[in-house]
Nucleic acid binder design. Sequence first.
DNA 1: GGATAATTTGACCGACTGGTAAACATTACA
DNA 2: TGTAATGTTTACCAGTCGGTCAAATTATCC
Lengths: 218, 218
Amino acid sequence: MAIPRAAKTQRRTRIQEEKEEQILEAALDVFSVSGFRGSTIDQIAEVAGMSKPNLLYYFRTKEAMHRALIDRVLFTWLEPLRAFNAQGNPESEIRGYIRRKLEMARDFPRESRLFANEVLQGAPHIEDELKGPLKELVDEKAEVIRTWAKAGKIVKCDPYHLIFSIWSTTQHYADFDVQVRAVLGQGQSGEGRFEDAARFLEQLFVDGLSVRAKQPAS
Amino acid sequence: MAIPRAAKTQRRTRIQEEKEEQILEAALDVFSVSGFRGSTIDQIAEVAGMSKPNLLYYFRTKEAMHRALIDRVLFTWLEPLRAFNAQGNPESEIRGYIRRKLEMARDFPRESRLFANEVLQGAPHIEDELKGPLKELVDEKAEVIRTWAKAGKIVKCDPYHLIFSIWSTTQHYADFDVQVRAVLGQGQSGEGRFEDAARFLEQLFVDGLSVRAKQPAS
DNA sequence: GGATAATTTGACCGACTGGTAAACATTACA
DNA sequence: TGTAATGTTTACCAGTCGGTCAAATTATCC
């Protein structure tokens, strides 16, 4: 009898490990483009090169595949914000955060789009994660930024909206990639656009928010 | 015989006008949440309070409904950018553009999400519009910004990425509304968040990019 | 090599999908 | 008021959906 699905002895066989990886890879391809409702198990099966019942042997439902993907992505997606260091230099911390987020948009666009699709459609599967772990992490880092501002190390601004704007500007290059390419045209659509973006965002956020280049009140 | 669907005499009856409006309103509700593939005609019919065949009497296919919506939204969505005036004062033009975009995110979030869903999923229905009219408009306005920078009225920066960052930061409040609310928590989730966002974005873009508050090279 | 467990598949199910046909109801207008 | 055009609905269709099942195949371990 076959019951497994990562049950019984907790230990997963080599095949289980490989196949689950293979399935999640395919699921990421499909979910990141069509969202949960718009994706079908058949599509994922075809991309994964396996039969549909075989997918359902490893993940009981379509929702279980999505869930597994989301959990994995959510964790790595917050890594850059977690690395945000209160003891560091404000300017280089912000610069580093932007750089890392932009690199993730470049190197893991599917993960970004999966997340964007989910939030865009009302986050029906991850509302708890947003209100819990995410909010706590942002609250913590916002406090750091506020402290820097109070100490005069950085211009005074709303830390939450600062974080939102860093999220949106960087993820834009993954989520709205088609639009960015269309507007930039054939010329600048190579990977050079990420370097241009990095330069611009650094100028906008770092130069714009650092205190040293500013007068107290114009 | 019934053939109409806005054919024959071009002139649309009162009923046609009303019903088509009613359908598009419902379609916007549904498409903006689930995207094209994830939405069903039955859902739209239920929201519209009409029978499915009745919808299909006014719009032959699901695609036709989507098309009609996209066309309408695309036009109004670009209005703020079109209003961007080369003769105006750079600072107030940018400020005004941000304000208008933010107001649209607040007042027409469904339209923003419809568009975001479409682009996110690879823009299969609007690629031509992006590469044509949109690109031309952006090219034109980018040239304006570049001129301002050359004349020293504004800090030198990549005009395309400036426009991208205004798009992304403002639309973020419509597209990622659930996330924004979750992070801000019960307290700041009222409409006040748009005022806070406006204040922050103005600070970031206007103060950050204006020349007068900056030293030439720190 | 054989028993046992793990894996894979084809056939299938009921619910739902986009869309059609044709009968029925309503409106506009002479 | 009659009638032709317009608008609406019920019943239906073929294809797809998520998911099940039992049989077949393969890996594992003694």
